[in-house]
Simulated scan of single mutants.
Amino acid sequence: MRRYTTLLLTAFLLLAIVIAGSAYLAGSGHIDHRTKTPELTVLTTLPAEEAEILSDAYEENSGVRVNFVPLSSAEALERMQAQAENAHQTKAAMVLADWQTLGKASQSGCLEPYVSERGDMVPEAFRQQDGYWMGVWYDPVVFCINRDYLKTLRADIPDTWQALSEQDARIGITDFMAADASANLFYAMTAEFGEEKTMDIFEKIHPHVVQYARYLSNPVRQAGMGEVDISIAVESETLRYIHDGYPLQIIYPTDGTTAWITGTAILQNDGEREKAMAKNFADWLLSDEAQLALQSHNYFFVPTNPGTLAYKSFAGKNLVLFTQLPQFSEQQRHDLLDKWAREVRFK
């Protein structure tokens, strides 16, 4: 896996050298008259460090400065709604956020449709068909297994959710009530397998859980340190630890898994120049250059654009994703988590 990561980064660096002489056409927009640098304001639910990496890389690539406004999902939705209702408010041109926030924004009428040639390559599973939001990368949930433990299994390797629930192993997992990406797994499995089977799986897993972690990285660290044998984890954190030399291996569930999707959307905005800049930035986020910027800082996500070298290089690009979307209301989500807490977590 370390060899695969090194080869991937090398390929990207070669690609960057080849295209370095080509300036990306970012269009015109707001100009900072002190620096004469075009500026683009983007709302985001990404961590500030990720946003800064993308901003620096895009400015170097295009000459446009991206001013990210980090917000929670609720804050982003409130800001988008206020902007759509107030023509005199300072305008953001775009949002880069998780798919759930983008879905709610499209329902509230805050977005404008946009589909480009590059975006049209993205599979329908990662975008809204009417063009109101477009996924740029995703982070699947995987089984993260300690290699020393893997050697003891020989041929009996758990590669389905049912097999994992029947495995006599120490298991790490992030508490469903502590992180949205972890809760999304529970909702997605319920939509795919049904409530009864999903509850049965986690009832069987529960006695083997060493600790319900609060953060997505902790189960991966536990597996890497040998504190657990197998962790249910997001792939990006697993690859980060593998890149740092931890003895881990990824197993992709053959009966399917879910993924946390990050995507873009164009906000309602009267400024045509700002919208043009936003569309160019949205297209750039679907490129190898964006993935190179993230991976050079140990952020490993699966691109939604199958035309990129980054997509072709990921070992898990053909993983099986659930076919049923977790379309539960807020009350239904609350009730499902409450039932899991009562009948599994704190029983």
Rank of each mutant, 00 (worst) to 15 (best):
L9Y: 03
T10V: 07
A11D: 04
L15I: 02
L15Q: 02
I17F: 01
V18L: 12
V18P: 01
I19T: 11
I19G: 08
I19Y: 04
A20T: 06
A20V: 12
A20K: 07
S22L: 07
S22D: 05
S22F: 10
S22R: 15
S22P: 01
A23S: 08
A26F: 09
G27M: 11
G29C: 09
G29M: 11
I31D: 09
D32N: 15
D32W: 13
D32T: 11
H33N: 14
H33P: 07
H33S: 13
R34L: 15
R34F: 05
R34M: 12
T35K: 04
T35G: 11
T35E: 06
K36I: 06
T37Y: 02
P38A: 09
P38L: 11
P38D: 08
L40M: 12
L40I: 15
L40A: 08
T41V: 15
T41C: 09
V42P: 09
T44E: 12
L46F: 12
L46P: 07
P47L: 11
P47R: 14
A48Q: 15
E50P: 03
E50F: 11
E50V: 14
I53T: 15
I53Q: 03
L54Q: 09
S55T: 11
S55M: 10
A57P: 09
Y58D: 09
E60H: 04
S62R: 01
S62D: 09
V66C: 01
V66G: 06
N67C: 10
P70Y: 06
S72C: 02
S73E: 14
A74I: 08
A74G: 09
E75S: 13
L77E: 10
L77K: 03
E78A: 14
R79Q: 10
Q81G: 07
Q81R: 12
Q81E: 13
Q81D: 06
A82N: 06
E85S: 05
E85L: 13
N86A: 08
N86D: 15
N86G: 03
H88Y: 10
T90A: 09
T90C: 02
K91L: 06
A93K: 05
V95L: 08
L96T: 13
A97E: 00
A97I: 01
D98P: 01
D98I: 04
T101H: 01
L102N: 00
K104C: 00
A105H: 03
A105D: 02
A105L: 05
S106N: 00
Q107L: 01
C110K: 00
C110T: 07
L111M: 01
L111A: 01
L111R: 01
P113R: 02
P113D: 02
Y114R: 05
V115R: 02
V115A: 00
S116V: 03
E117K: 14
R118E: 08
D120M: 04
M121W: 06
V122Q: 10
P123Y: 09
P123W: 10
E124G: 07
E124A: 15
